[in-house]
Amino acid sequence: MRKASSAVWKKLKPEVNASENILVKNSFDVDGGNFDTAGTVSTRIKSILKEQGLPSDVVRRSAIVSYEAEINVVSYAKRGVINLTVTPAAVEIAVNDEGPGIPDIEKAMQQGYSTASQQIREMGFGAGMGLYNIKSYSDRFDISSEVDKGTFLKMIILIQKP
Protein backbone atom coordinates (compact mmCIF):
# COMPACT_ATOMS: atom_id res chain seq x y z
CA MET A 1 0.00 0.00 0.00
CA ARG A 2 2.81 2.31 0.92
CA LYS A 3 4.65 1.49 -2.29
CA ALA A 4 1.64 2.23 -4.42
CA SER A 5 1.09 5.60 -2.79
CA SER A 6 4.78 6.47 -3.19
CA ALA A 7 4.40 6.01 -6.92
CA VAL A 8 1.46 8.39 -6.91
CA TRP A 9 3.54 10.86 -4.97
CA LYS A 10 6.33 10.83 -7.53
CA LYS A 11 3.91 11.71 -10.26
CA LEU A 12 2.47 14.58 -8.25
CA LYS A 13 5.59 15.94 -6.68
CA PRO A 14 6.41 18.63 -9.25
CA GLU A 15 2.88 20.01 -9.09
CA VAL A 16 2.76 20.14 -5.32
CA ASN A 17 6.06 21.96 -5.23
CA ALA A 18 5.35 24.44 -8.01
CA SER A 19 5.02 27.68 -6.09
CA GLU A 20 2.85 29.41 -8.70
CA ASN A 21 0.20 26.75 -8.10
CA ILE A 22 -0.10 27.23 -4.38
CA LEU A 23 -3.64 28.25 -3.51
CA VAL A 24 -3.30 28.31 0.27
CA LYS A 25 -0.30 28.37 2.56
CA ASN A 26 -0.93 28.70 6.28
CA SER A 27 0.88 27.93 9.47
CA PHE A 28 -0.77 27.30 12.85
CA ASP A 29 0.69 26.95 16.33
CA VAL A 30 -0.55 24.19 18.63
CA ASP A 31 -0.18 24.32 22.43
CA GLY A 32 0.89 21.07 24.05
CA GLY A 33 -1.32 19.97 26.93
CA ASN A 34 -4.11 22.44 26.25
CA PHE A 35 -7.25 20.37 25.69
CA ASP A 36 -9.48 23.47 25.76
CA THR A 37 -8.16 24.68 22.43
CA ALA A 38 -7.32 21.24 21.00
CA GLY A 39 -8.99 20.82 17.63
CA THR A 40 -9.37 24.52 16.86
CA VAL A 41 -6.65 24.42 14.21
CA SER A 42 -8.38 21.53 12.44
CA THR A 43 -11.71 23.34 12.59
CA ARG A 44 -9.97 26.34 10.98
CA ILE A 45 -8.34 24.12 8.33
CA LYS A 46 -11.71 22.62 7.52
CA SER A 47 -13.31 26.00 6.92
CA ILE A 48 -10.35 27.17 4.81
CA LEU A 49 -10.65 24.08 2.60
CA LYS A 50 -14.41 24.51 2.37
CA GLU A 51 -13.92 28.13 1.24
CA GLN A 52 -11.64 26.80 -1.51
CA GLY A 53 -14.58 24.80 -2.80
CA LEU A 54 -12.77 21.48 -2.52
CA PRO A 55 -14.76 18.22 -2.75
CA SER A 56 -16.40 17.36 0.59
CA ASP A 57 -14.54 14.04 0.80
CA VAL A 58 -11.20 15.87 0.52
CA VAL A 59 -12.27 18.45 3.11
CA ARG A 60 -13.45 15.78 5.51
CA ARG A 61 -10.37 13.57 5.20
CA SER A 62 -8.04 16.56 5.56
CA ALA A 63 -9.93 17.68 8.67
CA ILE A 64 -9.74 14.18 10.17
CA VAL A 65 -5.99 13.77 9.67
CA SER A 66 -5.23 17.27 10.94
CA TYR A 67 -7.47 16.70 13.94
CA GLU A 68 -5.77 13.43 14.89
CA ALA A 69 -2.34 15.00 14.42
CA GLU A 70 -3.36 18.03 16.46
CA ILE A 71 -4.63 15.83 19.29
CA ASN A 72 -1.33 13.95 19.26
CA VAL A 73 0.58 17.22 19.69
CA VAL A 74 -1.73 18.32 22.52
CA SER A 75 -1.55 14.91 24.21
CA TYR A 76 2.17 14.33 24.08
CA ALA A 77 4.24 17.32 22.95
CA LYS A 78 5.26 20.69 24.37
CA ARG A 79 4.25 22.56 21.26
CA GLY A 80 3.83 22.04 17.58
CA VAL A 81 3.25 23.72 14.24
CA ILE A 82 0.80 22.60 11.58
CA ASN A 83 1.51 23.75 8.03
CA LEU A 84 -1.27 23.64 5.48
CA THR A 85 -0.52 23.85 1.77
CA VAL A 86 -3.14 23.54 -0.93
CA THR A 87 -2.43 23.20 -4.63
CA PRO A 88 -4.86 22.27 -7.39
CA ALA A 89 -3.64 18.68 -7.04
CA ALA A 90 -3.51 18.06 -3.32
CA VAL A 91 -3.83 19.17 0.27
CA GLU A 92 -0.63 18.82 2.25
CA ILE A 93 -0.64 18.89 6.04
CA ALA A 94 2.73 18.85 7.76
CA VAL A 95 3.08 18.70 11.52
CA ASN A 96 6.27 19.35 13.48
CA ASP A 97 6.32 18.99 17.23
CA GLU A 98 8.77 19.46 20.06
CA GLY A 99 8.20 16.58 22.40
CA PRO A 100 9.23 13.15 23.60
CA GLY A 101 9.28 11.64 20.11
CA ILE A 102 8.27 8.07 19.32
CA PRO A 103 10.82 5.35 20.15
CA ASP A 104 9.15 2.63 18.08
CA ILE A 105 7.18 4.01 15.14
CA GLU A 106 6.14 0.60 13.87
CA LYS A 107 4.54 -0.18 17.21
CA ALA A 108 2.90 3.24 17.43
CA MET A 109 1.31 2.65 14.02
CA GLN A 110 -0.47 -0.49 15.24
CA GLN A 111 -4.17 -0.31 15.97
CA GLY A 112 -4.78 -0.35 19.70
CA TYR A 113 -1.25 0.56 20.77
CA SER A 114 -1.16 3.65 22.95
CA THR A 115 0.93 5.24 25.68
CA ALA A 116 -1.84 7.66 26.68
CA SER A 117 -2.49 8.50 30.32
CA GLN A 118 -5.73 7.54 32.05
CA GLN A 119 -6.74 11.23 32.00
CA ILE A 120 -6.41 11.30 28.21
CA ARG A 121 -8.34 8.03 27.92
CA GLU A 122 -11.23 9.34 29.99
CA MET A 123 -11.56 12.16 27.48
CA GLY A 124 -12.12 9.51 24.83
CA PHE A 125 -8.64 9.59 23.33
CA GLY A 126 -5.73 7.22 23.56
CA ALA A 127 -7.41 4.19 22.04
CA GLY A 128 -4.39 3.64 19.86
CA MET A 129 -6.13 4.57 16.62
CA GLY A 130 -4.62 8.01 15.94
CA LEU A 131 -1.69 7.28 13.68
CA TYR A 132 -3.57 4.38 12.15
CA ASN A 133 -6.44 6.73 11.28
CA ILE A 134 -4.06 9.31 9.87
CA LYS A 135 -2.47 6.72 7.64
CA SER A 136 -5.73 5.26 6.41
CA TYR A 137 -7.32 8.62 5.60
CA SER A 138 -4.22 9.98 3.79
CA ASP A 139 -3.18 9.19 0.25
CA ARG A 140 0.40 9.53 1.34
CA PHE A 141 1.76 9.54 4.84
CA ASP A 142 5.28 10.14 6.12
CA ILE A 143 6.45 9.96 9.70
CA SER A 144 9.81 10.46 11.33
CA SER A 145 10.70 10.95 14.95
CA GLU A 146 13.63 11.55 17.22
CA VAL A 147 13.39 10.57 20.89
CA ASP A 148 13.47 13.61 23.22
CA LYS A 149 13.34 15.96 20.23
CA GLY A 150 10.03 15.57 18.46
CA THR A 151 7.97 14.06 15.68
CA PHE A 152 7.34 15.07 12.09
CA LEU A 153 4.31 14.00 10.10
CA LYS A 154 3.35 14.78 6.52
CA MET A 155 0.03 13.84 5.04
CA ILE A 156 -1.13 14.28 1.45
CA ILE A 157 -4.74 14.13 0.41
CA LEU A 158 -5.15 14.10 -3.35
CA ILE A 159 -7.75 16.36 -4.91
CA GLN A 160 -7.52 14.97 -8.40
CA LYS A 161 -7.21 11.23 -8.39
CA PRO A 162 -4.65 10.14 -10.98
Partner: peptide, 21 residues
Protein backbone atom coordinates in the same frame (compact mmCIF):
# COMPACT_ATOMS: atom_id res chain seq x y z
CA UNK B 1 -21.09 12.10 7.38
CA UNK B 2 -24.80 12.64 7.95
CA UNK B 3 -25.07 10.10 10.79
CA UNK B 4 -26.09 10.73 14.37
CA UNK B 5 -23.41 10.25 16.97
CA UNK B 6 -24.55 8.52 20.18
CA UNK B 7 -22.03 9.09 22.93
CA UNK B 8 -21.43 9.50 26.63
CA UNK B 9 -18.65 12.01 26.04
CA UNK B 10 -19.65 15.61 26.66
CA UNK B 11 -16.51 17.69 26.17
CA UNK B 12 -15.97 20.27 23.43
CA UNK B 13 -13.89 17.72 21.52
CA UNK B 14 -17.03 15.76 20.72
CA UNK B 15 -18.49 18.83 19.05
CA UNK B 16 -15.25 19.54 17.19
CA UNK B 17 -15.16 15.96 15.94
CA UNK B 18 -18.81 16.10 14.93
CA UNK B 19 -17.99 19.22 12.95
CA UNK B 20 -14.91 17.64 11.37
CA UNK B 21 -16.98 14.61 10.31
Amino acid sequence: AGSMLLTGLTNTQVVRIANVL
